[in-house]
């Protein structure tokens, strides 16, 4: 009983704080100073139609590098926690046969899902989207493959290579910014190109493709680790 009252008290206190914040909130009429700078100069300096992408990949690209690292760490910790000793592996886990519908449909849908994911991260500088949603879409395709075939195992070799190449590529492109342009992760290594075209905005499409592949590989690795953990003896 007392527990319920404590919970109620905490909720009421938080509600009070939130109400205070809410009642002090007034909708903006104009942009703030930082946002105004990005809006005025973002398209011109970076050449990306999507200003959010310009901020994420170029202005605050270092932040994004850290973010990718956090995802990598998460995947590494999950693999570590779910590690099974060789003698604990169940040789033949009893599995339920997948329904014909899921099995057939996944063969048609999975390539389409991969294509949509690639489209999303390649066009990150033009449309709402980018490496992170694109990678998540690709991982959802891998999830469908695991669901339709419980014996499917995500190849560690492929994951490791894709992840290493894209991670190193991301950093190398950043270093090229130091050598050929204004600084680390500066996107003007290549020309800015025609505004609004696929090959524009310097190296943003390449960096976002690397991010997309890396995120997709990391999330697939997590899914594979969780799926593999079912083989453990109880």
């Amino acid at each position: 009983m007392i527990k319920k009252w404590i919970i109620l008290g905490i909720l009421a206190g938080m509600g009070l704080i939130f109400f205070d914040l809410f009642s002090a909130f007034r909708g903006n009429e104009t942009l703030g100073k930082t946002a105004d700078y990005y809006a005025r100069h973002g398209a011109e300096e970076v050449g990306a139609s999507n200003i959010v992408t310009a901020i994420v990949v170029t202005y605050r690209g270092f932040d994004t590098l850290g973010e990718v690292t956090i995802l990598f760490l998460t995947a590494a910790i999950i693999s570590f926690v779910l590690k099974i000793r060789q003698e604990d592996i169940l040789p033949n886990r009893p599995i339920r046969i997948t329904s014909e519908l899921l099995d057939s449909a996944s063969q048609v849908i999975v390539p389409v899902i991969f294509m949509v994911g690639i489209y999303i991260f390649v066009n990150g500088h033009l449309t709402p989207g980018g490496g992170f949603p694109g990678g998540a879409v690709i991982a959802s395709g891998v999830l469908l493959m695991i669901l339709s075939n419980p014996n499917f195992s995500v190849s560690h070799k492929v994951i490791a290579w894709v992840e290493s190449i894209s991670g190193v590529g991301f950093v190398l492109l950043g270093v090229m910014g130091i050598l050929f342009a204004g600084g680390f992760l500066d996107n003007r290594v290549l020309g800015l190109g025609d505004f609004g075209k696929l090959f524009s905005a310097g190296i943003i499409p390449f960096i976002y493709s690397f991010i997309g592949l890396k995120v997709g590989a990391e999330l697939s690795n997590i899914l594979g680790a969780i799926s593999h953990a079912q083989n453990e003896k109880n």
Binding site: N28, R40, I51, V52
Partner: peptide, 27 residues
């Protein structure tokens, strides 16, 4: 939404919402 069609510095600032919180939310 902060996605522009043409490069026009003076007009862009009057057309879009603040992109910074959106970038933060992405993270």
């Amino acid at each position: 939404a902060p996605i522009l069609d043409v490069i026009n510095a003076s007009e862009a600032a009057n057309k879009i919402v603040d992109p910074v919180p959106q970038a933060l939310v992405l993270t």
